[in-house]
Design a protein around this nucleic acid. Structure first.
Lengths: 219, 219
DNA sequence: CACTGTGAATGCATTCACAGCG
DNA sequence: CGCTGTGAATGCATTCACAGTG
């Protein structure tokens, strides 16, 4: 199990999460068995890829019938670490984006609970947003440690992102999602994921190519 | 140039955007030349990777000195299609997340301008957010066509995501960013990128492993 | 029969390592 | 020198294709 955990390719890990979600839907619809082909069709993947990914988790398929939905879902949740367990999350930066994340119900449903929120704006400190009291930024590492925060989410300006990130790490946080458009330096023991919409847009712009360009109005 | 465009590996395209941003910073700091080694250090990449990526754009380095910051930045912006040009963006779903994206200044700075916003809530229709008037959802494809929207951003609930996506495509949009936790079916001519925070969190949970788990309180 | 699970083959992306250049 | 640009080598991820199974 432990050795298995680290042998799953990174790309597959992300898809395991997709499978788990889709299996939840199927289960709610009363579907008991699903083939790799149909599961793949629902998610835009090939049947071969589905089988390969699922093979990392174990052997849950039945020849000629497919995968038992509930059983596979349980196995995936366990592998992903979201089964019967709560992950504590800290949010740094309660601006527009941070507030939107706090308000999103989907996370709690999957076992991710905001326990800490901080902001550098004194006017925001003390406010209660979605049941979480906003604390001042300088308390971040202490609060992270006290609440045993597992995951930190950064929605702060680029200029302060590295500093805030360091505080999370000082508070024992070993997994971070960064929304700031900046590169963060973290030790190898810390897992970092960047969500950068500007980069997504620019990648799309690249593929759109040079068609139908309109001049930017000169200021 | 055209043939070059489609021969750049997808993974490199995303990094080109990183390079462009970092070069902007360096330029503002008055740096005139930068080596692949130092550029890589600033972004958490190896020098070899930086050189390989930049080689897809052209030969802009000078032996023994590195890359001329301004010249390289211009070349990258041109390649990415963000030079002297505006890309029209439509937002579908003006909830918490959608509002946060509308309010974010970073996009406009890089040439992405929201020209259309729609929401299915009649109470929101007519409101002006960040200078954009919210229109009713059923007008999406018509508005997308009229404003020649290039990129659509979906911040709607999963259940309606496919329908709204289809309307964007019907309106001529060929690039879409999807924030809904759902798989979207699009024709091969449409470029789709998914931003799914729940999946990021679950991937992190996987890597955090089984240490320090706390039981979810039974309801 | 309809399916899985997986070796083997392929296709990408990254890294190595070095010739070549100012 | 110090650095780029790039063939060649390596390392991952995906896809093929089929033996094996209930």
């Amino acid at each position: 199990m432990k050795s298995l955990r680290h042998s799953i390719p990174e790309a597959s890990v992300e898809r395991l999460s997709l499978y788990a979600r889709e299996l939840g839907r199927l289960d709610r619809q009363g579907v008991a068995f699903i083939s790799s082909k149909r599961l793949g069709e629902a998610l835009g993947l090939t049947d071969a890829q589905v089988r390969r990914d699922l093979s990392y988790v174990g052997q849950f398929g039945k020849s000629g019938r497919g995968y038992e939905v509930q059983r596979l879902q349980t196995a995936l949740s366990r592998t992903l670490g979201i089964e019967g367990r709560v992950w504590s999350v800290a949010l740094a930066g309660v601006g527009n984006l941070g507030s939107a994340l706090l308000a999103y119900r989907g996370f709690q449903e999957r076992g991710f609970v905001f326990r800490v929120a901080v902001d550098s704006d004194p006017a925001k400190v003390g406010q209660v947003v979605q049941g979480v009291t906003i604390a001042p930024s300088h308390q971040l590492s202490e609060l992270a440690r006290r609440h045993q925060v597992h995951i930190g989410i950064l929605t702060v300006p680029s200029e302060t992102a590295q500093r805030v990130c360091d505080q999370l790490i000082a508070g024992g946080v070993r997994a971070i999602v960064n929304f700031a458009p900046a590169h963060l330096d973290v030790p190898a023991s810390v897992r970092l994921r960047n969500m950068d919409l500007a980069i997504e847009l620019e990648a799309l712009a690249f593929y759109l190519g040079t068609e139908q360009p309109r001049r930017r109005p000169t200021p």
